[in-house]
Design a protein around this nucleic acid. Structure first.
Length: 486
RNA sequence: GGCGGCAUAGCCAAGUGGUAAGGCAGCGGUCUGCAAAACCGUUAUCUCCGGUUCAAAUCCGGAUGCCGCCUCCA
């Protein structure tokens, strides 16, 4: 099955056909670095990271560009407030950004350009737009003449006449038309500025993405992504700028992710209902956040809550617990299963594998893909349960191989199970204020009581430990312990 | 006011024509000294009304409710 992508521009799913075979150019709008990232940024980052990984898994060489907006009003305000320079502010938050993204396990994009590193490209871009009549200078500012671009509104489905009614002009602006937007802003005294043919100033927000995307990916490229809220005006304006200059179709597939909501309301900095990535990662496993995001379709809004994070985390632990047992699968010796059963084991894995890739091909349906992953874990458990069954090498290899590829694409279940579970235990033990040594001692005491058939006392120890957050489990292979559910 | 989206079991959620994945929780059972884990079984006719079709959660029309964009925003 071929990859299908929902294209915002066409408002429908289309077969994905990149400009060049085996190669994909992808640009994703990054963050404005004036503060810590919140989980809305995390969602977007996780979604496009997964798309990036999947395209690579399909064999494409992907040029993935994700920018930093490092000059902007918000950064200037922040700098003034803290008595820093704008570049000190942006440097600081770029550093914080990387800390968060690393914890989320994001693959590095091919390029991560910053607006301030491309001022020249931006100026050239604007010069071109003035030269061909799409932009005009006005008192040190440069504006894009929206009405000069015929296709304006084609991405967001907006009608230029209706936009007119809602448009407003800020005092001091010298636009010819209220819809026009700034490409270059004259700098006020004390603001960071760059020399330009129109005097000292700085770029407007939209132009940097046009300049940087085409700089790295060419006049036309395959995928441009970002949050839903960027459709208008940001991406609409990018199209106007870029196609206005190049007279060539800009982007083939526009991909937009849905919002994170809290209590069914859009997460918003202004209303204060938001969580930063790090306050969530201090409480939950990064992979749990990732799993939570990927258990929903990327275009749907998702409602964030402690309950849903806890659920994702439980599913994560359960999966890792099964995964850990793969190494105990008897791989030596001949299959004990009848050929029929052996075939059905292998066939089932093939079925899950196909289901996984079909789902991913269907507009990156990670939720559907994950169900195949859980099905596979379930099959594994079924298998492990019956110790008389020993699958042959081939089948185990197949299961293992599929799990690994799927985990690498989704970025969940891709850690070493033993390491993952141990680190979880260590972290939780510290919180619970108990050591592994204490637990082992309790288990030893309990074991001798059990040998003496003093079950009541033995159970007492178990419930005491449970009270302290430790679950004790007797298995055929000995007594194990784990962190108890809350 | 304009444009767009969503409504599926107790909760979350996938599913764009052929009688409903998966996760979390629950219930019954197997296993266990008892538990836990795991396994087996079980829990929905898809907001409502009308239409198209041999056949609709899926297409069309209408109603109700919720949300987003139209201003900086992932």
């Amino acid at each position: 099955m071929a990859l299908k992508i929902y294209n915002t521009l066409m408002q429908t799913r289309e077969d994905f056909k990149p400009l060049r075979p085996d190669h994909v150019g992808m640009y994703v709008c990054g963050v404005t670095v004036y503060d810590l990232c919140h989980i809305g940024h995390a969602r977007s980052a996780i979604v496009f990271d997964t798309i990036y990984r999947y395209l690579q898994a399909k064999g494409y060489t992907v040029d993935y560009v994700k920018n930093f907006t490092d000059i902007d009003d918000k950064i200037i305000n922040r700098a003034n407030k803290e008595g820093l320079t704008t570049s000190q502010v942006s440097e600081k938050y770029i550093e914080e950004y990387y800390k968060d993204m690393d914890r989320l396990g994001l693959k590095k994009p091919t390029h991560e350009p910053r607006a301030t590193m491309h001022i020249n490209d931006i100026i050239l871009f604007i010069k071109g737009l003035i030269a061909n009549g799409h932009a005009y200078e006005s008192g040190g500012d440069v504006y894009y003449a929206v009405r000069s671009f015929e296709g304006y509104g084609k991405l967001s489905g907006k009608n230029i006449e209706e936009l007119e009614a809602g448009a407003r002009v800020e005092p001091g602006e010298a636009k010819k038309d209220p819809l026009d937007f700034a490409l270059w802003k004259k700098s006020k005294p004390g603001e960071p500025s760059w020399e330009s043919p129109w005097g000292d100033g700085r770029p407007g927000w939209h132009i940097e993405c046009s300049a940087m995307s085409t700089c790295y990916l060419g006049q036309s490229f395959d995928i441009h992504g970002g949050g839903m809220d960027l459709i208008f005006p940001h991406h609409e304006n990018e199209i106007a700028q870029t196609e206005g200059l190049t007279k060539t179709p800009f982007v083939r597939y526009w991909i937009h992710n849905g919002f994170v909501q809290i209590n069914k309301e859009k997460m918003s900095k202004s209303t204060g209902n938001f969580f930063t990535i790090r306050e969530i990662l201090d409480r939950y496993e990064p992979q749990a956040l990732r799993l939570f995001v990927l258990m929903h379709h990327y275009r749907s809004p998702i409602d964030f809550s402690d309950q849903s994070l806890k659920e994702a985390e439980k599913a994560l632990y359960r999966g890792y617990s099964s995964l850990r047992l793969i190494q105990y699968l008897p791989v030596k010796g001949k299959p004990v299963l009848s050929p029929d059963k052996m075939n059905s084991f292998t066939e089932k894995i093939s079925g899950f594998e196909k289901g996984f890739y079909d789902a991913m091909d269907d507009d990156f349906n990670t939720a559907g893909a994950l169900s195949c992953l859980f099905d596979t874990l379930h099959l594994l458990n079924t298998y492990l349960r019956d110790s008389t069954l020993s699958p042959d090498q081939e089948a185990v290899k197949k299961l293992h191989g599929f799990m690994k590829s799927a985990a690498d694409i989704l970025g969940v279940f891709d850690s070493d199970p033993q390491v993952f579970l141990t680190s979880r235990k260590d972290k939780r033990l510290a919180v619970l204020g108990i050591t592994a040594g204490e637990i082992e001692q309790a288990i030893a005491r309990r074991a001798s009581l059990r040998r003496e058939k003093k079950f009541k006392e033995a159970d007492g120890i178990r419930s005491e430990m449970l009270g302290r957050g430790i679950a004790i489990m007797d298995t055929a292979g000995g007594t194990l312990w784990d962190i108890a559910d809350e």
